[in-house]
Design a protein around this nucleic acid. Structure first.
Length: 480
RNA sequence: GGGGUCGUGGGCCAACCUGGUAAGCUUCCUGCUUUGGGAGCAGGCGAUCUGAGUUCAAAUCUCAGCGACCCCA
């Protein structure tokens, strides 16, 4: 490595995002992609620690809203799978099948667990008093991806949460969709610092088996969007397929309305890396940082090490994840390393600090050092940690600023897309009849119609592609 | 879906065309020394993707397989 390369992690994120992403995964030890099965990777401690915290925040949010946790089996019998025709059609090409054992049902590794949950829903739900029935599970799911796989972003096994709910009425189901969107904001935006837009997906881009699909798109720094949590109105199709019925107040037997919501934590982690990182490496929001504070001694003298230990114990006692780097490397090298790893705060301790009863503290988000009184440490961290999160969120929110451009012709859309932005345009329809126009955009521009914003927007004039009356305002972007 | 590039120690790569002892940098290990923004010296461990073929001899040539990366739709 040349001196020049050593100065920082030193890959210009905004100029060469793809290389940046690949390199940071390797350097920060997030995943080892050398596992010998295509599309399967080893998640290393630095990503696991962050994802554990992410799971915890997401699960708490769900539990606070009345979802109860389950662990369902990883295998699903083929006959469950086949019960809902759209679902089986959509997912069959992506299923990993287990070699069948003579005399037993053919089994799939779950690509998603609708057909496992609803099978049991039919046994558990009897009365309107059981509704809404709100569940979730934390699970790994398997999909035989044929497109190029990327660590965290698209793997053949990924780690997610799937929430499944049964409701008495369509109105209740719709309310659940709104609750899911609110949960997404509370967790993805307010804690993980990820800005997104929720779209209603066009008819041709729905979850297989859903009546309506709503999905959050996060804008990556390279101008492409990444689909993050989606929530689906499954209506009564699955209820009918799995015979999930309840006795209503009016004594009539009715099918439930089902919704499902799927935040993929490993994929959301990809966005956390991508959105917050910079040329020096990762930056973690405080609440999900694998390590919140790293303590670095300037020398390995007894006196200094004692102070380091003292500080570490103090922080851990106060529920702050802290470690000390007492390896035999020079301080400078440790600084660069832990900055690259994205630890939000660093405490530097040496003889000077001990003598003056002060600490030198470095903030990863601002890249600045300051001196504080040792006694003020806990107060400082409490205040600064929330400042760090606020500033990361604020900076991330800017991604959408000026990046959504209205376009009134195919050529204009193309221009917008090629400049790495999202185009907003009048469009004939997001029902089946609009698919031909979407294909034109896909073919000629290489971008997708992501859907319509949930905030009502009234189109004026004609579809930018076919010139028929525009019924919708849609958003067009390149996607992962 | 279409096209292209490439598989050599943990990482980056040389040797391949023209078959003959696999070089270098880095990481790692040991020792000494050093520690206020990527230190230095000395020594050491570690590799030709898999299989078949051609040949006295294969990292090198041929075929097949597996795997990875990039571009385009």
């Amino acid at each position: 490595m040349t001196k020049e390369e050593k100065v920082t992690f030193n890959i210009e994120k905004n100029k060469n995002f793809s290389e940046w992403y690949t390199e940071i995964i390797k350097k920060a030890e997030l995943a080892d992609i050398r596992y010998n099965v295509k599309g399967f990777i080893v998640f290393q401690p630095w990503s696991v620690l962050a994802m554990e915290k992410m799971f915890k925040h997401m699960e708490s949010a769900l539990q606070n809203k009345g979802h109860m946790p389950y662990y369902f089996p990883t295998v699903i019998p083929e006959k469950n799978f086949k019960k809902e025709s759209h679902h089986v059609k959509g997912f069959t090409p992506e299923v990993f099948w287990l070699e069948s054992v003579k005399g037993e049902d053919k089994l799939a590794l779950r690509p998603t667990s609708e057909t496992a949950f609803y099978q049991m829903f039919s046994l558990w739900i009897n009365s309107y008093k059981d509704l809404p029935f709100k569940t979730y599970q934390r699970a790994n799911v398997f999909r035989y991806e044929t497109k190029a796989t990327r660590p965290f972003l698209r793997s053949r096994e990924f780690h997610w949460i799937e929430a499944h709910c049964a409701h008495a009425t369509e109105k209740d189901a719709m309310a659940q969709v709104h609750e899911d969107m609110e949960t997404t904001k509370e967790v993805l935006h307010d804690i993980f610092g990820l800005p997104f837009i929720f779209f209603q997906r066009p008819e041709w881009d729905k979850f297989p088996g859903a009546k309506t699909t709503y999905a959050a798109d996060v804008l990556n720094p390279d101008g492409r969007v990444v689909q993050q949590p989606s929530t689906h109105l499954l209506e009564q199709e699955f209820a009918k397929a799995f015979d999930v019925k309840f006795k209503d107040k009016d004594e009539k037997e009715k099918y439930v309305y089902i919704t499902c919501y799927g935040p993929a934590i490993s994929r959301i982690f990809a966005s956390v890396i991508s959105i917050h990182g910079d040329n020096k490496g990762l930056k973690f929001p405080w609440k999900i940082a694998p390590m919140q504070v790293i303590i670095i001694p300037f020398s390995l003298d007894k006196e200094v090490l004692k102070k380091v230990d003292e500080l570490k114990s103090l922080l851990i006692k106060n529920n702050i994840s802290a470690q000390a780097d007492i390896s035999d490397k020079r301080p400078g090298e440790k600084f660069y390393y832990w900055e690259m790893k994205g630890v939000p705060l660093r405490i530097e301790v040496g003889k000077k600090e001990i003598q003056s009863k002060e600490l030198t503290i470095y903030r990863r988000d601002t890249n600045k050092k300051e001196k504080i009184k040792e006694k003020a440490l806990l107060g400082y961290i409490e205040k600064t940690s929330s400042e760090i999160d606020k500033s990361l969120i604020k900076q991330a929110d800017k991604l959408f600023d000026n990046n959504i451009i209205s376009a009134s012709s195919k050529e204009e859309i193309k221009k917008v897309i090629e400049s790495g932005k999202i185009a907003r345009c009048n469009f004939c329809s997001i029902s089946k009849t609009g698919e031909a126009c979407a294909e034109v955009i896909e073919k000629e521009i290489g971008a997708q119609v992501r859907g319509k914003n949930l905030k009502k927007e009234s189109p004026k004039g004609k579809c930018v592609i076919c010139n028929k009356k525009a019924e919708e305002v849609v958003y067009v972007a390149r996607a992962y």
